[in-house]
Amino acid sequence: MKQRKSLDWNFTVEASTYTILAIAVIFTSFPILWGLTTSFKPLDQINVFPPTLFPKPVVFDSYIKVLFRSNFKVYLFNSIFMTGFTVLVSTALASHAGYALARFKIPHRKNIMFALLMMGMVPIVALLIPLYLLSVQTGLYNTRLVILLIYVAWRTPIMTWILYGFFSQAPIEIEEAARIDGCTPVATFYKIMLPISQSGLVSSALLSAVFVWNDFLIAFTFTTKENLRMVSVGLYNYITQYGIIWGELMAAAIVSIIPMIVLFILMQRKFVSGLASGAVKG
């Protein structure tokens, strides 16, 4: 009798687990799927009421317009370029800084770390106006350089913290052995620490890549030139123009999310470990 009851209970738990997860999947994927079907619809099936669920026939007009007959490919290039560059530079800076804080004997080490954490938590929205004033005064407004520097300054403190955590948890014995063999602290970093820390570096780099790729505020504030524009601002411009062309907008949005989704599916573990180890969002 007891056994029977527990079996029923087990079944209920199983069934409700799958039911709740299925509902969550529908809730999560519906807006994306709706955008996806819209992007494949012919023009006369998009602005109609009642809306239809599936495109009939499936057409690629919106994608062709976005990819070949608009400046969207320029925006894509700019976003890829800025994301790649920012991730490289901030990983280089943050790995050095993180290692120095983890292993070097530095006066006021705790204070420096606290200051870095605080700086890392200053929100971008509070910095936009002064950075705008500074970039206009220095003539750097509307240049790739200033956007790159702002992105790097934005991401580096948090990456330093993540990598500091990573380096300080690494077994110190390997480094001590290297030091006994006559390696300087600097050589130990390059020859021993960097090679064994690849997974930590990749995690924090991926995390930053998502933030830069997805950024709107900095890209919007510091560029007005068409040839410097990045994807997020290009998407936004679709809704400010007169009469939104939803098919093209959804096609552009889908194109813009594909790189991140592919990256995420391929390197899910690294993403999750980066996020969990930092538990810090910019």
């Binding site: 807006p31 994306i32 950024d215 709107f216 997020s232 998407l235 936004y236």
Partner: peptide
């Protein structure tokens, strides 16, 4: 991104 989320 927040941009894409908002647009969707």
């Amino acid at each position: 991104s927040q941009t894409v989320t908002a647009l969707l």
